[in-house]
Design a protein around this nucleic acid. Structure first.
Lengths: 230, 230
DNA sequence: GTCTATATGTTGATAGAC
DNA sequence: GTCTATCAACATATAGAC
């Protein structure tokens, strides 16, 4: 495989100037498939049809390349979440749990459908799953940087939606919703047939996820403080 | 750091014959902290106070070492799950959703409490999270090998508990429960204060998780087939 | 069973030409 | 901005002594 052969393996035909974008696409794909540590800079730059030094010119290091890959996808999703949550909170001082959960989950599906439509990439969801499974400092700091504000806003909204519930219980419910979401979008679990996510026709699946998470949060909040199941 | 210095970094004082166990403990810890690809055999064998060749003597390769680490923890948990599910199904032909979910989740907490009590290790849960975030063939085949039977048994039990529901909906509910579980046990998400799991006094948290998952599964199953939220 | 020593390949990053 | 060439460090795995 030489760098000149423009085969299906490459992200897009190389045209001058967009090397940086091609590197982001290639890194997104390889980080998703092989993981951050499992991906060499060579694996990325070969897919992007360029040289290792070009990647280091644009991003400085492998770690910074990862940050750029993740930021590119997460930021628009979070902006959409915040904007819609503003609207929900403006409409009602005591929002519905379902409305808050909808606003939290829907932008993920919308972003994925957009990317599928533009042949962009099916890969980011896999990176997101890894992001939540890695306790290393690099990844931990990215999670904090990317999700602190959103998590605080949505937790506050859920607390307002469930004013009678113990705050700790709502926090647990929110955490469990995030887990449900991460696992569901990472897909391809291979243990059953319904694991994989629908692409553009996501509404039925999303409806089930909203129902699951909303009912789950309400139920977790309703467990009595000292109640054991034993 | 010489191999003779018996510092706190090592897993246990080296006594002859238990090199294999020390290697499993050390690998469990390092794979949890650094990931499989991020961990070198040297990092494992230094922690276990032995040589790389000893690890390859006992396990053959790094991949087989990973398999051994994971099997050691997962097998007892799954055996407990199956045994208790047998009992639940023997007691009632239409089991409770709550009873099935309890039997699925509780063995995880019991195993963790046992390990904490024996200072065994706080590390496996992190490996489990990585196990679910990795789409590579090695990991995929391990998931299939380890969880196929359990997943099939519990999905069948849930279908029996919800005879009116669409099977696809129950499958989605089961998948979302697994996601909730994986994320919750991996802990240390760092975005909020309630992320970390309680150790031995796990009953209150477990009760909330059972309530969340059971209500979630029921709600997901109750969403009408063509119903959208839009 | 466990060691030391080593073979062979790959890694991330940079120097310097154009 | 992008390349080729190169570096030192590190990887997995094995050979062979004890």
């Amino acid at each position: 495989m030489t760098r000149d052969s423009n085969t299906a393996l490459e992200i897009a035909p190389a045209s001058p100037g967009d090397t940086k974008e091609r590197l982001l696409d290639a890194a997104e794909r390889r980080f998703a498939e092989l993981g951050f540590q499992g991906t060499s800079m060579r694996a990325v730059t070969q897919l992007a049809d360029t040289a290792v030094s070009a990647a280091n010119y644009h991003f400085g290091s492998k770690e910074e390349l990862l940050r750029a890959v993740i930021r590119r996808r997460v930021q628009p999703i979070n902006e959409k979440r915040i904007k819609r949550l503003d609207e929900v909170e403006a409409a009602a001082s005591t929002p519905d749990v379902e409305a808050v959960v909808d606003v939290f989950l829907r932008p993920l599906f919308e972003a994925r459908a957009e990317r599928l439509a533009s042949a962009g990439g099916e890969f980011f969801r896999q990176i997101a799953a890894r992001l939540y499974a890695d306790p290393q400092q690099l990844v931990l700091s990215m999670r904090k940087e990317l999700f602190s504000e959103v998590n605080e806003r949505f937790l506050a909204a859920l607390l307002r939606a469930l004013p009678e519930a113990a705050p700790e219980a709502v926090g647990v419910g929110m955490q469990l919703m995030v887990g449900m979401m991460v696992h569901a979008i990472s897909g391809q679990h291979g243990e059953s047939e319904i694991d994989d996510l629908p692409g553009t026709d996501y509404e039925p699946r999303l409806a089930r996820m909203i129902a699951f998470a909303s009912a789950g949060i309400r139920a977790a909040a309703a467990v009595p403080e000292q109640g054991g199941a034993r």
